[in-house]
Amino acid sequence: MKNASLVLNVVLAIAVAVLYYLHFKDRPAEIQPVAAPAEAKGKEIVYVNVDSLLTKYDYFKDTQKVLESKRFQLENDLATKGRNLQNKVAFFQQRAQTMTMEQGRATEASLQKEQQDLLAYRERAAQNLAVEEQKKNQELYDQIYDYLKKVNAQNKYEFVLGYTKGGGILFADPSADATKKILDGLNKEYQAKQQPKK
């Protein structure tokens, strides 16, 4: 009896499966209409020509003048100190025959120390100038970044790229060039900071 019940259940399951197949096999699958995707809005990307920015931004030009002046003063100072040392060496060489051995050694040691001091001074001055230049470059970057951040509150640019010929960007569409607009704003802001406060 149990076997008959089991066989009957198997036959009924097969019959249901066949009926299910026959019923749905000829029906075309219902095609769900696909909703058209909403128009994707691209991210706003502009670029700034870095070469133009550096050559036309008044802050950068003023900073370069100051640094160039300091370099020139340092070179003149080093040249003057170097000539003084050369004159002392030449004077020592002329008077070396009239000096005692101890005086000669003492003068020679003094001149060597002066030469080492001059080299150390040149090294320190060059490092100080490099640190100042690095600080000015950081200030330049901060000013540009702060300005772009402030202006971007209105424009909502996703990216502002820095373009230089031969750089990482191979092509830049001129319609995305925001250099003049950003440069004008930066110069206007810089000039306002330079005017004496009343």
Results as ranks from 00 to 15, higher is better:
Asn187Cys: 06
Asp117His: 01
Lys193Phe: 07
Gly185Ala: 00
Gln115Phe: 09
Asn3Lys: 12
Glu44Ser: 14
Glu75Lys: 11
Ser5Gly: 15
Arg124Ile: 07
Ala109Asn: 14
Lys135Trp: 13
Leu85His: 08
Phe159Ala: 04
Lys181Asp: 15
Gln73Ala: 14
Asn155Val: 01
Phe92Arg: 08
Thr55Asn: 06
Lys188Gln: 15
Thr63Leu: 01
Leu22Gly: 07
Thr98Ser: 10
Lys150Cys: 00
Ile144Val: 06
Gln32Lys: 10
Ala90Trp: 02
Arg124Met: 07
Glu102Met: 08
Ala36Asn: 03
Ala36Thr: 13
Gln103Asp: 09
Asn152Lys: 08
Thr63Met: 07
Glu133Ala: 10
Asn187Phe: 01
Gln134Leu: 07
Lys150Asn: 07
Lys197Glu: 05
Gln32His: 08
Ala176Ser: 09
Leu140Trp: 00
Gly42Arg: 13
Leu22Cys: 04
Leu8Asn: 08
Asp26Trp: 11
Asn9Ala: 15
Lys197Asn: 09
Glu114Asp: 15
Asn3Phe: 14
Thr63Val: 09
Glu189Lys: 09
Leu111Thr: 01
Asp177Thr: 03
Ser110Asn: 10
Gln194Phe: 07
Gln127Ser: 13
Val131Glu: 13
Phe92Glu: 06
Lys65Val: 11
Lys81Ala: 11
Leu53Trp: 07
Gln138Cys: 04
Ala96Asn: 06
Asn187Gly: 14
Leu186Thr: 04
Gln154Phe: 05
His23Lys: 11
Ala130Phe: 06
Arg124Asn: 09
Leu54Ile: 10
Leu118Ser: 04
Lys188Asn: 15
Gln93Glu: 14
Leu118Val: 06
Arg124Thr: 10
Tyr163Ser: 02
Asp184Ile: 02
Lys193His: 01
Phe24Glu: 13
Thr63His: 00
Tyr157Thr: 05
Val18Ser: 07
Glu75Asp: 12
Ala40Cys: 02
Leu67Gly: 02
Gln94Ile: 13
Gln64Cys: 09
Asp146His: 09
Val131Gln: 14
Gln86Tyr: 12
Ala125Met: 14
Asp142Ile: 10
Gln64Asn: 09
Gln73Asn: 13
Thr80Ala: 15
Glu139Tyr: 01
Asn49Gly: 03
Ser52Tyr: 00
Leu8Trp: 09
Asp62Asn: 13
Tyr57His: 03
Ala125Val: 05
Ile31Thr: 12
Phe171Lys: 01
Leu140Thr: 05
